[in-house]
Structure formats: structure tokens, C-alpha cells
Nucleic acid binder design. Structure first.
Lengths: 234, 234
DNA sequence: AAAATAACATGACAATTATCATCTTAATAA
DNA sequence: TTATTAAGATGATAATTGTCATGTTATTTT
């Protein structure tokens, strides 16, 4: 009894439990989860898994920020998605029964839990709400991916940079000094908007000169959100 | 009894039943499906649904070809996906409980069946294999979308055209005269690869001159698949 | 602290791609 | 059939973006 409570607390109070598909799990399922999960700490720059690897489960992001990306032939790293605490990672490969299509690396030190596939399949078979949640989460990813695909073609690099800065602001918020909380290198930022690092740097300079943003060392502060929005949309 | 058989045949023999997530349905479910579906014929150019519309169900594509696209501010139509017979349409919006994110139009005369959401939810709640199939189908779309997103950034227009021609050949096959079976206008082809119509036409001319393809009127014949593959990959 | 490396920045230039104009050919409507 | 419109084609040009070179400023490592 005592032990059960201890084990349960581990997962029950977890932010991932509260925010992800896992919120549909009942008490017993959470207890089961707590006993089957493994916790890892991933240092900034390290990989959770690489493209082509068989993961056989999903990762819960308890803390930190990760990126899902794919290396191109010419050595450029295209970032497909950023993940933050509360989210699950590796759902798609697991469901499709395929090796990872993308590489997952930590952008900020991460704390993650690994849930083996057998466990997830169990939940999936016995808890309809859980599978509906998971499905909706994949659908959300699909919608985002499609919209980004369209933006990639229909918008200029400048527009995409403005859009991405706003996104990062919305999703990750700002530090005490009002700069963006996610610390991306210019190269990573370029990898998100899909452009050359130099082009990204140049546009950041332009935005800075125009008063849209302010460059505080390597950090970025949004100064004129309205103007950025206007730039991004039109 | 007699009637049941007639009704059941309608859906049981259907290509969509055989190829899509619906293949997991059992006899009773197929009978239920047959009585709740509605059949439509959509002429080339007509829309099944438009961006922003609430669809409240999924479409089964029995025959023809459709495109999922989004109109940009500058009037260009970015094509996100082509659908052919055997596939389902509108799954994502239904699962996410959202209005359509994209517009679905017929590229070739279509015959479709509409299955109301209530019916799908029913299958979903009572048939685990069905929901797993549906989930995998969405995952497949997600993977494709992500890979196309990457290609859009990392490849040139020329590479993307080569890639798309090969894709169309693989997916839709060729007519008796060896030309591509899907009849896309140059504008639509440009909408898939994400470029200006003129650029697309120009590159087709180049490919023609290089002997990679042959332009038979408005139709396209692939002449050197190997060279096209090489062009697309590298 | 000095050296080495990585990240950031900017100029010069080249390549790619879009835009606009114009023309031809094919499809559709009158 | 002729007129009208849509689709395809091509040239000229401009705009955007990428590449290479080089310099500066931070960060790490020794």
C-alpha cells in the first residue's frame, strides 16, 4: 500500500501525465506505467534516438527541449518539430511499427521517461479514450506539418522567420529579461525556417535595425509583435 | 435476408473496404455501414468540401482522383496530397473535431461515399483493429508530410519535379500510350512541387530536351526513369 | 591566461526562381 | 464554324536566396 502510493506519485503528478494522451489513464494504469517506465537524463546536444533506430516505445518529456530533425545530403539539419515538457516523443514510429524517421536531440538538458511499446499497446487496447487522445495528437501534428509545408512554399524566408519567432514566443515564452526562453543557435533557427544560416543571421540583423526585435547577445527579444504578425501574414 | 445480402454487397466488395482502414470491419459492421452511407458523384473541378467547412464524416473514394489543397493569399493553390480510389478522405478533421483545414476537389470525375461521423465513432469504440488501422493511416500521412516538408527545403525545384513525376508514375501508373495516368495541368503540377507555373513548364521543356521525359500534347511520358531518380536524389 | 574552437556577422557575388509580357495552341462556348 | 477563353510555351528581367570569403566576438579547452 505504502509502496504503491510512492510509485504512483511518481507518474501521477508528472506534467506529462497531465498534458499528454496519458491523461486518460486511470489509477491502476498509472501504477502500471510507473513500474514499467525508465527515466533518463539527456544533456544538451545528445540524441534520444537517431534516424533509422528502432525505438520500441515512446518518450515522455518531463523537462527540457528537444528537436526532431533530419540531416540532408549537404549537411544541413532540417528541424521538423520542437518538443517541450509535457509532450510525448516517438509516437509515430511506434504506431507505424517503423524505425525512427527523424533524429531526436536535446536542445536544452532534458529529463525523459521511456515507456515500452508493450505497455502503450496495452493501454491502447483497454482504454478507448487513451487511443482517441493519441490519435488526436498525431492528427494535430499532421495538421501542423501540412500548414508548415504550405508556409514553406507560399511564404518568403523573411515571413517564415517572423512567423517562427512568434511561434517560439507563444510556445516557450520569455525569460525574465524578456528574451525568448528557447535558446536556439542561428543555425538551428535557420534549420526550422529552412534557409541558410547566413540568410537567417542577415534577416535577424534587418529585423533588429527595423526595431522588430532586439539582439541581446545571442538572445532574441521581440519588440514589436504586431509588426511581426503583419509581416508574417502578408 | 435477401435485402441484407444486396445491401452488404454494396460495401463488402468495394475497393475502399478492401484497401482502407475499413478492412478491419466485420460483416455486421459492413452491413451497418452500407445502410448509413451516402453515395455521390463529383465532376472534375468540383469540390467535395472546402477549407473551413464542417464535414462531420469521412469520404470513401471509390473512383477518380482528388486533390487536397490550400489557396494562398496570392491566389496560388498549394496541393498537399492527391487521393485515389481505395482511400479515405477527411479523417483528420473528423478525428480532431475541427473544420476542414484543406479544400478537396476532384481532378478526375469521382465517385465517393460519405460515412457519417457517428458511424465511424461507433466502429472506433467497438473495433480496436479499425482504430489501429486509422491511426496508422494518419501516421503514414504524417510521415509523408514531414518528408515532403524536408524535400521542399532541401531540394531544388528541378529535383522536386523529377521526384514528383516518379511519384505520380508509381502511384497512378501509366495509360496504354505510356503517358502518366493522372492528368494534371501544369498549374496543378506546379502546385504540388510548390513553384510558379512558368518554372514548372520551363523545367518540363528542359527535361524533354534532355530526353528524360516526352511531352505528348499535354500528357507526360517518362522516358528515362533511372536518370530522373538520379536527378531527384542528388 | 592563452590558444583554439565555435558562433555570429557582413560583404561580394552567383544561382535559382518568380514575375511580367507575349505568343501559340487547344478546348469550349456562342 | 467562329469567337472566346483557357492552357501551354518562351523570352527578358528582377527579386530572392545561397555560397564563399573573411572578420569579429564569445566560449571552451589546454
Amino acid at each position: 500500500m505504502q509502496q504503491t502510493n510512492i510509485v504512483m506519485n511518481k507518474c501521477d503528478q508528472c506534467i506529462v501525465r497531465q498534458l499528454s494522451s496519458l491523461k486518460a489513464l486511470n489509477k491502476e494504469e498509472v501504477i502500471k506505467l510507473a513500474s514499467s517506465k525508465t527515466t533518463y537524463k539527456i544533456k544538451k546536444g545528445e540524441a534520444l534516438f537517431e534516424e533509422g533506430e528502432v525505438t520500441n516505445g515512446v518518450f515522455c518529456v518531463k523537462d527540457g527541449v528537444g528537436k526532431l530533425s533530419k540531416l540532408s545530403a549537404n549537411g544541413k539539419d532540417q528541424i521538423v518539430k520542437l518538443v517541450k515538457s509535457g509532450e510525448l516523443l516517438g509516437q509515430r514510429s511506434m504506431i507505424s511499427n517503423e524505425p525512427a524517421n527523424l533524429t531526436a536531440k536535446a536542445i536544452a538538458d532534458m529529463e525523459v521517461c521511456f515507456i515500452p511499446k508493450t505497455e502503450i499497446i496495452n493501454f491502447f487496447n483497454n482504454n478507448n479514450q487513451f487511443s482517441l487522445n493519441m490519435m488526436q495528437s498525431v492528427c494535430e501534428d499532421l495538421k501542423e506539418s501540412e500548414n508548415e509545408k504550405i508556409a514553406l512554399v507560399q511564404k518568403t524566408v523573411k515571413q517564415r522567420l517572423a512567423e517562427t519567432l512568434l511561434h517560439l514566443h507563444d510556445e516557450f515564452g520569455e525569460d525574465a529579461d524578456k528574451t525568448l526562453k528557447v535558446q536556439l543557435t542561428r543555425e538551428e533557427l535557420a534549420g526550422i525556417i529552412g534557409t541558410a544560416t547566413e540568410s537567417c543571421i542577415r534577416l535577424l540583423s534587418d529585423f533588429n535595425k527595423l526595431g522588430l526585435i532586439e539582439l541581446v547577445g545571442k538572445k532574441i527579444m521581440l519588440k514589436d509583435v504586431r509588426a511581426l504578425k503583419k509581416l508574417a501574414d502578408n
